[in-house]
Simulated scan of single mutants.
Amino acid sequence: MIFSDIFFKQLPDPLSQQLFQISALLNIKTVCNDPLNFKWLETDEKQKILIHYLEDPHQHAALISSDIIASGKHLVFCPHVDTEAEALLISNGFHGALKVNASVVDIIEALKSIDSNKLYFSHDAMSRYIQTRKRQPNTQRQAELLSVTTKKEQQVLTLICQGMSNDQIADNLSISVNTVKMHIQNIFKKTKISSRGQLSYAFAQV
């Protein structure tokens, strides 16, 4: 099993210590970053799981910038996590959620799942998210949003909605990862949407 790098950002000390212990136990390469230093955005996104701490996901999930969301895979730790919060996190582009007091076993399982390109949320949350998506009509607003994007941006958007990473999109379209990132930033600006999850949610039925 090859684990991705783990990035620590604004985590409570006890949780950081526990994660470092798990990393050492499993021989996972870990990197500690200053929250104000975003050089980690330039690293290989295939080797990156960014770990967040959100005091209240209902209020703070949408505040994570699109640059950060687009930079890799994301695991969130929260004091309390309910089904509604998990569904919100899914829609905002996160890949998993755990309570701050999660067991070592749960943390390991979450990291394994996310590293394998799987989501780590409760079945209830994923069911709610899927059911909500199914109820979204192909609205005039969606058509308007599509009308402001180019053909290439629409191709990138389609692959984002399929859950592909930047590297996978680049391979699929035979373009560079930097070009993919440029298209995604243009899509965010034109649609006024700030995360991959929100794009998937808004265009699920397009």
Results as ranks from 00 to 15, higher is better:
residue 167 D to P: 01
residue 114 I to N: 01
residue 47 Q to M: 09
residue 119 L to V: 03
residue 143 A to Y: 07
residue 97 A to Y: 07
residue 30 T to F: 09
residue 179 T to V: 02
residue 113 S to C: 10
residue 76 V to Y: 04
residue 165 S to N: 03
residue 42 E to I: 03
residue 75 L to D: 01
residue 191 T to C: 12
residue 138 N to K: 12
residue 164 M to L: 14
residue 204 A to F: 14
residue 74 H to V: 04
residue 157 L to S: 07
residue 188 F to A: 02
residue 85 A to W: 01
residue 88 L to D: 05
residue 102 A to D: 06
residue 17 Q to M: 15
residue 30 T to R: 11
residue 192 K to Q: 11
residue 13 D to T: 14
residue 199 L to H: 06
residue 20 F to E: 14
residue 199 L to F: 07
residue 112 K to C: 01
residue 193 I to L: 14
residue 119 L to A: 08
residue 113 S to P: 00
residue 87 A to C: 09
residue 36 L to Q: 10
residue 121 F to V: 04
residue 168 Q to D: 05
residue 81 V to A: 10
residue 58 H to C: 11
residue 160 I to T: 04
residue 177 V to Q: 03
residue 51 I to F: 03
residue 181 K to H: 08
residue 126 M to R: 02
residue 125 A to D: 02
residue 119 L to S: 05
residue 20 F to S: 10
residue 196 R to F: 14
residue 86 E to S: 02
residue 99 K to S: 08
residue 111 L to N: 07
residue 59 Q to S: 13
residue 197 G to H: 09
residue 48 K to Y: 02
residue 3 F to V: 04
residue 37 N to A: 06
residue 63 L to H: 09
residue 15 L to C: 05
residue 16 S to D: 10
residue 134 K to E: 15
residue 91 S to K: 13
residue 39 K to S: 15
residue 190 K to R: 14
residue 67 D to S: 10
residue 15 L to D: 07
residue 142 Q to V: 14
residue 108 I to W: 04
residue 152 K to H: 07
residue 41 L to Q: 02
residue 164 M to H: 12
residue 119 L to C: 01
residue 120 Y to C: 13
residue 122 S to F: 00
residue 10 Q to P: 03
residue 110 A to R: 02
residue 26 L to W: 10
residue 24 A to D: 15
residue 161 C to W: 05
